[in-house]
Design a binder for these strands. Sequence first.
DNA 1: GTGAAAGCGCTAACAA
DNA 2: TTGTTAGCGCTTTCAC
Lengths: 342, 342
Amino acid sequence: MISKKKKVSIYDIAQRLGVSASTVSRALQDHHSIGAEMKQLVRKTAEEMDYKPNRVALSLKLGKNNAIGVLVPHINRNFFSSVIEGIQQTAAEKGYDVLICQSNESYSRECQLLSALSQGKVDGVIASIAAGTQDVAHFNRLEQYGIPLVLFDRVSPEIPAAMKVVVNDYRGAYQVVEHLYNQGCRRIFHYAGPQHVSVWKHRLEGYCDAMKDLGLKTGRESIVYGEDMVREEGERLIREVMRMKRKPDAIFFTSDFVALGALVEMKKQGLSAPDDIAVVGFANEPFDEWITPSLTSVEQYSCRMGELVAKMLIDKIDGETPGDIVIEPQLIVRESSRKNKE
Amino acid sequence: MISKKKKVSIYDIAQRLGVSASTVSRALQDHHSIGAEMKQLVRKTAEEMDYKPNRVALSLKLGKNNAIGVLVPHINRNFFSSVIEGIQQTAAEKGYDVLICQSNESYSRECQLLSALSQGKVDGVIASIAAGTQDVAHFNRLEQYGIPLVLFDRVSPEIPAAMKVVVNDYRGAYQVVEHLYNQGCRRIFHYAGPQHVSVWKHRLEGYCDAMKDLGLKTGRESIVYGEDMVREEGERLIREVMRMKRKPDAIFFTSDFVALGALVEMKKQGLSAPDDIAVVGFANEPFDEWITPSLTSVEQYSCRMGELVAKMLIDKIDGETPGDIVIEPQLIVRESSRKNKE
DNA sequence: GTGAAAGCGCTAACAA
DNA sequence: TTGTTAGCGCTTTCAC
């Protein structure tokens, strides 16, 4: 390997030109106190010498990194990678770098990562809380260090200083039940997620209220609590349902993946959706429209969510105090729940 | 908002303890020249004062960032987000931060981002070349600045200094053709991607060689060149195929998304896969096994790829010179091409 | 075993 | 219009 070229600094330029470093610095910043010819000359020389400003030095000096940290449960999940895409987009436009971390849904990992993010590399943090997290004190600590925090999707009321961007999960769930009701379903079950996670809690509330408002009963049997929200849980549920004397005529899953498992198992068991049991998911994963039957779900506008959340954080970094945002979700009706063919 | 607490530095600790900053620094690093009691005291005080080392200052001083830059065409694509997940995992284990950028397949954006990544924030770069890129000089420039580069998946032979991690696309494609041949297909078409992208070029080569070795003809008609490799192109292709006098009995798509479009359009046109036309994709996207018929594809071990690529870059940063890696892909046979029911 | 001082690359008072 | 200087927070030689 040939010589690793020494990086060129403003001092090198200054020396070559016989001026001081500050002149070079100012010229490069287009400072008004520098003459046009000088600016021209400096810029030309910088170009020639292939000068690149050192952003680390800049950060240290200015106390500003132009970087934001993003902490999510998983990168490789359509919802989160879409949000990240949105964050990236907006951040890049505003000149911010994006530092990515994943908690793997683990509380201890989340603590570690937040602590690392407090070590001065980022100007603010965007996060979505891990499923394994019950105590959120570590998030509040961030603000103590003066690092603005914006939460999205999985939020907590116990982090007062954080701004929030969420989907109206309550409304989304409510609409799902209404839709199922309109399709003629009356015995509607709900597969709920762990209740310490905000989104799953709100969806359950939406389900319960809608059922009540429509005069439908929700009993012990009609609400099932999931754990990891993976495909296998959906398959398991269907096997359980097969053993029930009074089967549901619809199941509203709080996750597309669990719903997918259910659809697969239903096929295996000779049950049809929507005719035997209507099925609805949540999150509108891309595969929803490709599977058979295609899966009714709730769109959360994840990419847009990322854009909003990034904009909100950057505004906060700039000293503004934007308000929380609630995104209205949209029910996407597909084959798995459409009984009235119109 | 209450007072933004001033960050505590080693000087604050030193002052409180009536010792010098260097003592504190050394104590914190467990330097041998510091007495056990002193170390103990410093650590306790640091804890009490909630001291967090400033990693920016560290970077500047040491000339080492413990950060790597990742530049991909799109974050929100299963293949890339899986690779990123793998990169993240390994990087985190080795104490590296991960900075994410996306080129959106655009050449000019890729140039900009690489230039930004040369500004001293990262110790090395991992990249996969944008589809819009023909000239790769900007990648070679990185090495001039002494920033190690590792390419994955979409690579180029014209970037000599970069290490590479790729899938054996040639073998993957070759195996697809063999498989289709064994299923009785003889008129096998290939939907190829833009040929300046390495992976698509190699897949085409594998296809051509396999066809030749098996004594099958490949004519002008049998190779179709795609552009953006999206669903719609698959649908379009099937409509074109409908107009042909001699239809293919199999189509090997170089992308699962295009294959998906084809399957959808085939259903609409009343064609069945694999009976009328066997269909194979590439990349083994998660939805492949959920759609009907399930889609035969080629697994690329993307998450593992991310781990390897991160390890390789970090080794390179540490001054080692690891060799290129070729991952052997695996053909996953599913309904869309399985004619002999065994 | 501990302290003083230089310096990583840059900016921004303050001087001239 | 330009130069001098201090300092962002840290490590590390060199001295004691």
